[in-house]
Design a protein around this nucleic acid. Structure first.
Lengths: 340, 340
DNA sequence: TTGAAAGCGATACCAC
DNA sequence: GTGGTATCGCTTTCAA
């Protein structure tokens, strides 16, 4: 297949100039007469010339390609970030590899080995949790989006929300509305348990800050063996079935929150009055629910933008201003906490 | 950055053999003694050698990379396919570029030009609609997943459902349950209007096959200016508000169906009895609804598998057995048509 | 302004 | 079984 495509050498021959000149013209580099430029460009166009990136990459040891590592693109929170990041990178002239790690260290290592071989210029680590120090392994710029970590390396940046503060704010929203017994529902949160990115930390801190006794029966954790929505509903159902009760729920994720709301409604509980619920992500799930679910906007667009520009800066060999970029979040109250 | 990585040449020098031998050992090709093999492999490992793919690609004119073109990865139907396809390709030793075309011809052309330059070995066109003949432009294998077209080219395969039949089955499901006036609700279906892939065709065909008069007031089309769920709800609301009525709804998509159900519920209509609704995709949206929404399973996993194996076959230069692969679909009835 | 030629890293043909 | 070397397509230095 592929009738050997035309090379810069062919163009040179046709134009009666050297490959050096052709290269210069094609890249707006060096100097050449307007005449040669038009000649070369004309021939290039008529021959349908397209540069061979493999050759260019080999020569320049830069592929203009970034790897997007994410646990699972089919998760809508991640895929929204992937979409945005890919778009921004494309605008900057980069292609993106998509790599689904399933949060599996081994698979991640495989990817990284492959990527270093494929000579990617940088890595955007979206929403995952590494136990392996990526940056050290690849020695190319790495940006972590939606995850905070301790950056030691020079070419590593973290962008994300202040998660402990975020869950703190969720919790305080409920108590401020008069809740007395607030449950915490999460699904697979353990994936996210790292020193600085503990999604649940704020819940615990709020309780201790306010001298409220932690009731472990109200901390419901699912292992994410099935859709988080279904699992969350089951957790709530079991808890209630076991005779425990609560009047507020901090749900770590809108899907989780929707599951909670559904489970409560199924038991005839008036969500928003009897029990208040708050989720996070401000995703479609919180909006399609009846009653509409209070949530926390995490500003993913800003995450993507700041992450990509930090990455691009590193690719230009600039030292990024900050190695940890905190994107603000914002509580959005809807019916499930307002009770209207 | 990147202390020039070790090359095959370095290995050769360290092992005291030629690059040819090293290459042979590394690729299990040609012949060499066991001793040299162990020596070379040992040194390669201790030097942390990784092949430079740019060089390999240049030499072999094959990048072991596939481009995934999709309108929008953040759409969960597409992203599920992307996830599956990427996984299968990875298992076969291919990396995947992710390209979001937004169904924009111009952007698509840009991508294609870039991809041909980046020397991708093949293209998986997922869920989009091309007006530009991709295959002709790139002259590499192309598989269209979730879209049927007329393949003329040798290296082009289409994989998807029989959409006209699918919507026919949706429609008949409703009439079989006793509906008399069935509406059709779609959002941005016009994107999909191609001769052989008209999502709505089966609706019209069912009506004419059964001598049922088409009521244009019951054909509700949205332009997808906002979330399809919201838009669908508005369409239904306007229709009802204008005094038209129906007792069945064919919704082209589960999100659309969910919007329809919400709109009906808001008006106090008993969904499943007064009005029956069927969606398609068997996505989470149909399952989280109360009442649960009847839908059509499209077997996306099978689509991905058959699409990828056809692509891999073409990459091996085999002629795929079929150039149009029809994946079976299956109506799944739930509360919104069963009325339980 | 233009060109000759070296070299990026790997493969493969052909001698030995 | 092993090695010398041309080659893939492009960029870039240095001379002319």
């Amino acid at each position: 297949m592929a009738k050997r495509s035309v090379s810069i050498y062919d163009l040179a021959k046709l134009a009666g100039v050297s490959t050096a000149t052709v290269s210069n013209v094609l890249n707006n580099k060096g100097s050449y007469s307007e005449k040669t430029r038009d000649l070369v460009l004309g021939i290039a166009r008529e021959q349908g010339y397209v540069a061979n990136f493999a050759a260019k990459s080999l020569r320049e040891s830069s592929t203009k390609t970034i790897a997007l590592l994410t646990p699972d693109v089919s998760n809508d929170f991640f895929s929204t970030l992937v979409l945005k990041v890919e778009g921004l990178l494309r605008a900057a002239g980069y292609s993106s590899y998509i790599c689904n790690t399933a949060n599996d260290d081994e698979r991640e290592d495989e990817y990284v080995r492959g990527l270093i071989s494929k000579q990617v210029d940088g890595i955007a680590y979206i929403g995952g949790v590494t136990r392996t120090p990526i940056q050290a392994a690849v020695d190319i710029p790495v940006v972590h989006i939606d995850h905070m970590g301790k950056s030691g390396m020079t070419h590593e940046v973290y962008v994300g929300n202040d998660m402990p503060q975020l869950s703190y704010d969720m919790t305080s929203t409920l108590f401020d509305r008069g809740c007395q017994h607030v449950a915490l529902v999460s699904v697979s949160a353990s994936f996210y348990r790292t020193e600085e990115h503990d999604q649940a930390a704020g819940y615990y801190r709020y309780l201790s800050d306010h001298g409220i006794r932690l009731d472990k029966n109200l901390v419901l954790e699912g292992a994410h063996r099935q859709t988080s929505l279904i699992e969350a509903a089951q957790l709530v159902d079991e808890c209630l079935g076991a005779g425990y009760s609560f009047d507020g729920v901090v749900a770590l994720g809108d899907r989780v929150a929707l599951g909670v709301v559904n489970a409560l409604k199924a038991r005839g509980i008036d969500v928003g009055r009897d029990v208040r619920v708050i989720g996070m992500d401000d995703s479609i799930y919180s909006r399609i629910s009846t009653p509409a679910i209070s949530t926390v906007r995490r500003n993913t667009d800003e995450m993507a933008e700041r992450g990509v520009s930090a990455l691009l800066a590193m690719l230009r060999d600039e030292q990024p201003a900050e190695s940890r970029i905190v994107v603000p979040h914002e509580v959005i109250e809807r019916a499930t906490t307002l009770g209207e």
